Simulated scan of single mutants.
Amino acid sequence: MDGHGGRPHKAERDALTVEVGFALVSAAFLAALVFAAVVGPAFLFGLPDLLSALLFQVGLALAPVVFVVRVVYVLVDFRRGAQPSQPGRTSPDS
Protein backbone atom coordinates (compact mmCIF):
# COMPACT_ATOMS: atom_id res chain seq x y z
CA MET A 1 0.00 0.00 0.00
CA ASP A 2 1.09 3.56 -0.34
CA GLY A 3 2.31 5.49 2.67
CA HIS A 4 -1.06 7.15 3.27
CA GLY A 5 -3.21 4.11 3.95
CA GLY A 6 -4.76 4.18 0.49
CA ARG A 7 -5.39 1.34 -1.88
CA PRO A 8 -2.44 -0.77 -3.00
CA HIS A 9 -0.85 -0.01 -6.33
CA LYS A 10 -1.15 -2.43 -9.23
CA ALA A 11 2.42 -3.67 -8.78
CA GLU A 12 1.74 -4.47 -5.12
CA ARG A 13 -1.47 -6.29 -6.01
CA ASP A 14 0.34 -8.24 -8.72
CA ALA A 15 3.13 -9.16 -6.30
CA LEU A 16 0.59 -10.37 -3.76
CA THR A 17 -1.22 -12.41 -6.42
CA VAL A 18 2.02 -14.07 -7.49
CA GLU A 19 2.98 -14.76 -3.88
CA VAL A 20 -0.39 -16.31 -3.05
CA GLY A 21 -0.15 -18.47 -6.17
CA PHE A 22 3.36 -19.55 -5.22
CA ALA A 23 2.24 -20.31 -1.67
CA LEU A 24 -0.65 -22.49 -2.87
CA VAL A 25 1.30 -24.36 -5.54
CA SER A 26 4.35 -24.99 -3.35
CA ALA A 27 2.11 -26.04 -0.44
CA ALA A 28 0.18 -28.48 -2.63
CA PHE A 29 3.43 -29.95 -3.94
CA LEU A 30 4.92 -30.28 -0.47
CA ALA A 31 1.73 -31.82 0.95
CA ALA A 32 1.64 -34.35 -1.89
CA LEU A 33 5.30 -35.14 -1.32
CA VAL A 34 4.74 -35.71 2.41
CA PHE A 35 1.68 -37.86 1.71
CA ALA A 36 3.64 -39.95 -0.79
CA ALA A 37 6.56 -40.31 1.61
CA VAL A 38 4.27 -41.55 4.38
CA VAL A 39 1.99 -43.79 2.30
CA GLY A 40 4.56 -44.93 -0.26
CA PRO A 41 6.22 -47.63 1.83
CA ALA A 42 2.87 -49.37 2.27
CA PHE A 43 2.62 -49.85 -1.50
CA LEU A 44 6.31 -50.42 -2.15
CA PHE A 45 6.93 -53.08 0.45
CA GLY A 46 3.52 -54.75 0.62
CA LEU A 47 3.04 -54.08 4.31
CA PRO A 48 0.20 -55.75 6.25
CA ASP A 49 -3.26 -54.27 5.77
CA LEU A 50 -3.48 -52.80 9.26
CA LEU A 51 -0.15 -50.99 8.90
CA SER A 52 -1.03 -49.83 5.39
CA ALA A 53 -4.32 -48.40 6.65
CA LEU A 54 -2.52 -46.69 9.54
CA LEU A 55 0.04 -45.11 7.22
CA PHE A 56 -2.74 -43.96 4.91
CA GLN A 57 -4.58 -42.30 7.82
CA VAL A 58 -1.38 -40.64 9.03
CA GLY A 59 -0.72 -39.37 5.51
CA LEU A 60 -4.26 -38.01 5.26
CA ALA A 61 -3.86 -36.22 8.59
CA LEU A 62 -0.37 -34.88 7.94
CA ALA A 63 -0.80 -33.56 4.38
CA PRO A 64 -3.35 -30.81 5.19
CA VAL A 65 -1.29 -29.70 8.19
CA VAL A 66 1.81 -29.37 6.00
CA PHE A 67 -0.25 -27.51 3.38
CA VAL A 68 -1.55 -24.93 5.87
CA VAL A 69 1.82 -24.47 7.57
CA ARG A 70 3.53 -23.87 4.22
CA VAL A 71 0.92 -21.34 3.03
CA VAL A 72 1.09 -19.42 6.30
CA TYR A 73 4.89 -19.48 6.32
CA VAL A 74 5.19 -18.15 2.76
CA LEU A 75 2.59 -15.41 3.23
CA VAL A 76 3.98 -14.25 6.59
CA ASP A 77 7.46 -14.18 5.11
CA PHE A 78 6.15 -12.11 2.19
CA ARG A 79 4.37 -9.70 4.50
CA ARG A 80 7.59 -9.10 6.44
CA GLY A 81 9.19 -8.11 3.17
CA ALA A 82 11.97 -10.66 3.39
CA GLN A 83 14.08 -10.60 0.29
CA PRO A 84 16.91 -12.92 -0.64
CA SER A 85 20.36 -11.48 -0.25
CA GLN A 86 22.01 -10.13 -3.34
CA PRO A 87 25.62 -11.28 -3.57
CA GLY A 88 28.07 -8.59 -4.51
CA ARG A 89 26.00 -5.71 -3.20
CA THR A 90 26.51 -3.91 0.06
CA SER A 91 23.69 -3.86 2.53
CA PRO A 92 22.05 -0.51 3.38
CA ASP A 93 23.41 -0.79 6.92
CA SER A 94 27.07 -0.72 5.87
Rank of each mutant, 00 (worst) to 15 (best):
M1L: 12
D2Q: 10
D2T: 14
G3M: 09
H4R: 07
H4P: 00
G6N: 06
G6W: 00
R7H: 10
P8V: 04
P8A: 10
H9M: 11
H9E: 15
H9W: 13
H9V: 06
K10E: 15
K10T: 14
K10D: 15
K10C: 09
A11K: 07
E12D: 12
E12M: 09
R13P: 05
A15V: 02
A15S: 12
V18F: 14
V18N: 10
V20T: 04
G21A: 05
G21P: 05
G21T: 10
A23F: 01
L24K: 10
V25T: 14
S26Q: 04
A27E: 01
A27V: 08
A28I: 10
F29K: 03
F29A: 15
A31P: 02
A32S: 15
V34L: 13
V34S: 08
F35V: 03
F35W: 04
F35S: 11
A37W: 04
A37H: 00
A37Q: 04
V38F: 02
V38E: 08
G40R: 01
G40K: 00
G40F: 01
P41L: 06
P41T: 05
P41N: 03
A42L: 03
A42V: 03
F43D: 15
F43P: 00
F45K: 02
G46I: 01
G46S: 10
L47S: 04
P48E: 04
D49G: 15
L50R: 13
S52L: 07
S52D: 11
A53C: 03
A53T: 08
L54K: 09
L54A: 15
L54I: 14
L55F: 06
F56W: 09
F56A: 10
Q57I: 10
V58R: 05
L60M: 13
A61Q: 06
A61M: 13
A61K: 06
L62P: 04
A63L: 05
P64A: 05
P64N: 09
P64M: 07
P64L: 11
V65P: 00
V65N: 07
V66N: 01
F67A: 04
V68T: 09
V69D: 12
V69T: 07
R70G: 00
V71E: 01
V71F: 05
V71I: 12
V71K: 09
V72D: 08
V72S: 03
Y73T: 07
Y73V: 05
V74Q: 15
V74S: 12
L75I: 10
V76E: 08
V76L: 11
V76T: 12
D77S: 14
D77C: 07
F78H: 13
R79F: 02
R79A: 02
R79E: 01
R79P: 00
A82I: 08
A82F: 07
Q83H: 07
S85G: 06
Q86A: 13
P87N: 01
G88Q: 03
G88A: 06
G88Y: 03
R89Q: 12
T90H: 11
S91R: 09
S91G: 11
S91E: 11
S91C: 10
S91Q: 10
P92R: 04
P92T: 05
D93Q: 11
D93A: 12
S94C: 09
